[in-house]
């Protein structure tokens, strides 16, 4: 009986096509990835089923941490610089050098009373994280200037944005998108102060940043009895 010869095939494959795909995907992910900068004030976001998208630009972010510190941030550098100019003119006693102003325009978020602001402007990001910022005074009793500093920041930023918009320097925008990012474990008292500041400054529409909750009937926890 003649033996049937099974032809031996090599197990080596041509990997070229696979490499192509792999690197194509790699390039895509590398280009689309935006590394999140380390957060100055990390908070545990409450969850909700709300679905308002946060725009990419012109956002004013007010953060309230679990221990009641308030941070303020603007994402537009031009608005930031202009708001600082307005604040300087308004508070008068605190002066900024040009270097400090440049430093400020590069600062995404901060949480110190106004009189300490020049000091942290020239710091590096790491130093700013380290010093432990104490939060912006939300009522006049905490402020050295006896003014609601958060309110001043909100007012001056909105004015700065409006001026720049009218001058045609920041393209089309519909005003600042005001976001409140509060820690779920923060006491309502602190949040209430911020909300009162909003309404005092005629900000009656704002947005609470939440993490997404699973759809349908969301029941995660069981009651503790």
């Amino acid at each position: 009986m003649p033996k049937v010869k099974v032809p031996r095939k090599s197990t080596a494959m041509d990997m070229t096509a696979m490499t192509d795909v792999a690197f194509l995907l790699l390039t895509f992910f590398m280009l689309t990835t935006k590394f999140r900068p380390p957060e100055l004030a990390p908070v545990d976001l409450p969850s909700s089923r709300a679905e308002v998208k946060i725009p990419d630009k012109n956002v004013m972010l007010i953060t309230c941490t679990a221990d009641g510190k308030v941070f303020f941030g603007l994402d537009n550098k031009k608005v930031r610089a202009r708001a600082l100019d307005r604040m300087e003119a308004s508070f008068q006693t605190v002066k900024f050098t040009p270097e400090e102003k440049t430093g400020f325009s590069l600062m995404d978020e901060f949480g110190v009373p106004f009189e300490q602001l020049p000091k942290i402007c020239t710091m590096s990001n790491e130093e700013r994280m380290k010093i432990g910022q104490t939060g912006i005074p939300v009522d006049s009793t905490q402020s050295k200037f006896h003014r609601n500093e958060l309110g001043e920041w909100i007012y001056n930023s909105r004015m700065a944005e409006a001026e720049l918009r009218q001058a045609g320097e920041i393209g089309d925008s519909e005003g600042l998108f005001i976001c409140l990012k509060g820690a779920g474990s923060a006491d309502y008292a602190t949040v209430k102060k911020i909300i009162t500041t909003f309404t005092d400054k005629k900000v009656n529409k704002f947005n609470i940043i939440t993490s997404m909750e699973a759809g349908g009937v969301a029941v995660a926890e069981t009651p503790k009895h």
Partner: peptide
């Protein structure tokens, strides 16, 4: 590397809940 970038990419941005307060 793909795995790394896929895992570190955040596709879902946080959502916002809009609030309308009555005028003071």
């Amino acid at each position: 590397l793909i795995t790394f970038f896929m895992l570190t990419t955040t596709f879902n941005k946080p959502q916002a809940m809009s609030q309308n307060f009555p005028e003071k």
